[in-house]
Simulated scan of single mutants.
Amino acid sequence: MPEHEKLKEAKIDALFDQLIANNIIISMSLVGSGYEHLTCATGVHRTPVGKHLCIDLPQGFRAAVANKTHFTLRFNFNGPDKLEYLFNTIGGQINGRDLLVPFPDYVERIQRRRNFRMPPPLDTNLLIKMGKVHAIISLINISLGGAFGVLTKHNVKDLQDSLLRVNQSLPHVGIIVPACEDWSEQVIIIQRAQVRRIEHDRENKRYRYAFEFMEIVPDELKKLTRCIYNFQRQFLKRR
């Protein structure tokens, strides 16, 4: 099976029907800008000039395209088969609470499984303890395979550089998900995580870190899976 496959015509119709029926969450980004937001498809709009996918209008999109006459949108999502799908569209039309985007010429299916990233609730933290060093990472997004966040607290005096290094192994990392009206506080233990990427925000003098979860016991994986499902459900309730 090839690693990449292009779906066209009837296969796109069937895929988008599943996208709508299952309320699958989509990541939509405005190419050439920093705008990216989660959304979902709400239907298909047919006109004499072609079919359009109806996208739930994401927050801030009007402002992001206010001064643009032409723009390209990039979409990606995990399908019902848990594989990653990608497609681009040129332009779009705002119609009430929907964004109508033309059907793409093709949708690319990547024949490898990928863990879809979700933004967790505010104050979701990853806790690190390395001997006498303690640190708190405020999470920006999380998946079954890893997490990304910004270092907000540590106990190292006069730290001038990155607290962590690429490929550093971190044992017994804790993730704390705060309680809300839909669930109680959750504590998830990752047996071993590894630092995969470091970003230095020089303007704000902060470091952001990407972690890969290397070892996690089945019970903790179930808790993490349930949390991510709850994040998705909460997102859909708010839209």
Rank of each mutant, 00 (worst) to 15 (best):
M1L: 05
E3G: 01
E9S: 04
A10W: 00
A14Y: 00
D17Y: 00
N22H: 07
I24C: 00
I25Y: 00
I25G: 00
I26V: 09
I26R: 00
S29L: 05
G34K: 08
E36A: 11
V44Q: 06
T47S: 13
T47D: 08
T47P: 03
K51N: 14
H52F: 15
C54M: 15
C54E: 15
D56G: 04
D56S: 14
L57Y: 06
G60A: 08
F61N: 01
F61G: 09
R62G: 11
A64T: 08
A64D: 03
N76T: 08
F77A: 09
P80N: 05
L83M: 09
L83F: 12
E84S: 11
N88I: 00
I90V: 13
G96T: 08
R97C: 07
L99R: 05
V101L: 04
P102T: 13
Y106Q: 12
R109N: 06
R112N: 13
R113D: 12
R113Q: 15
M118R: 07
M118D: 03
P120H: 05
P120Q: 04
P120M: 10
D123K: 15
T124N: 09
T124K: 06
N125P: 00
M130F: 02
G131W: 02
L139E: 10
I140Q: 10
S143K: 09
L144Q: 15
L144T: 13
G145S: 12
G145M: 11
G145V: 11
G146S: 12
G146F: 13
V150H: 05
K153L: 13
N155W: 04
N155F: 06
D158V: 01
L159R: 12
L164P: 06
R165Y: 09
V166N: 07
Q168C: 08
P178W: 04
C180L: 02
D182M: 02
D182K: 09
S184P: 00
I188M: 05
I190W: 02
Q191Y: 02
A193P: 09
Q194G: 03
Q194N: 05
V195T: 11
R197L: 11
H200W: 08
N204R: 14
R206M: 12
Y209A: 05
A210K: 14
A210S: 15
F211T: 12
E212W: 11
E215K: 15
I216V: 15
V217Q: 14
P218C: 05
P218S: 02
E220S: 12
K222R: 08
K223G: 10
T225K: 14
T225Y: 13
N230H: 06
F231K: 04
R233M: 12
F235L: 09
L236V: 06
